[in-house]
Amino acid sequence: MIPYLLFATFFGLLLLGIHRKLIARIQRRPGPPIWQEILHTLKFSFKSTWIPATASEVLFVSVVLIAIGIWTAAFFVLVTGGSLLIIFAIYMLHKIVEHGFGLSSGSPYGKFGGVRSVISAASEIPLFVSVSAVAIFTGSLQISDIIAYQAETGPLLFTIPLAAIALYLVILSKVPASPFAIVESKEIVSGYKTEHFGVWRAGLETCNGLKSYVLLLTFITVFIGALPFLGILLTMLLLVVSLAFVCALCPMLSPFDSVTIQTIITGIMLIYVLYLGVFG
């Protein structure tokens, strides 16, 4: 598991780099090299580090540990075929971590980023909707059972396409530069990340790499099923390409619009699941 964990972290960072490069190329800019995010992480870990004088010290440091820890846990749950609910919980708790990052420093920019992450809680409900749609069809929330179900009846992607779109939107709201990325938009400097520099930021980037890998792997496992390892990596790459197109071509929404659109999507998804539950 240790080598796979390290691989997942670095491959996730590489995917983020590819994402960034693709956005740049779509917008006809040269863009950074694709391993830029890995370099970023290393660069931050070499920088001198201290804790801001206004920060709540213990929380400032431990929130970084928690951020990496919860996504490590999510990774293991996914790989060992545990409950999809746990991954859902960890995704939602990432919000708390973002909130914690923002509030712990005492900086107004961080605080705004943290608070925006709280008000964008609307983006989580599509995730719950897709989880419940999966539960309606497979009768179980264990990832191993979901894989077994898809091995028999074919990918869920074709059975419940709208639920797959819901999960895709959830992933979209978490990638950098997405239309829904209000938590780290530029008018609040770097959002919740603003005051975490040096080693703390390196830890945060590690968490981001692992998070992208886990989210993409969740999508593939839940909606496509078991694939050979290379197939998984290629599908991830395809997903990242599609995400990059969306991110490059859509402007970032204002917080109000972002929450409104996410709420509308949630409403549509709820109706869909009610329909599935009654007639499905």
Partner: peptide, 27 residues
């Protein structure tokens, strides 16, 4: 596994609340 992981998270954050001093907010 689900309730245990939620329980542990609540526990970790409670310990953090006990251990950390409040931030000094910048205005």
């Amino acid at each position: 596994p689900y309730t245990l992981s939620l329980f542990l998270l609540a526990l970790v954050f409670t310990v953090l609340v006990i251990a950390s001093r409040p931030e000094r907010q910048l205005d």
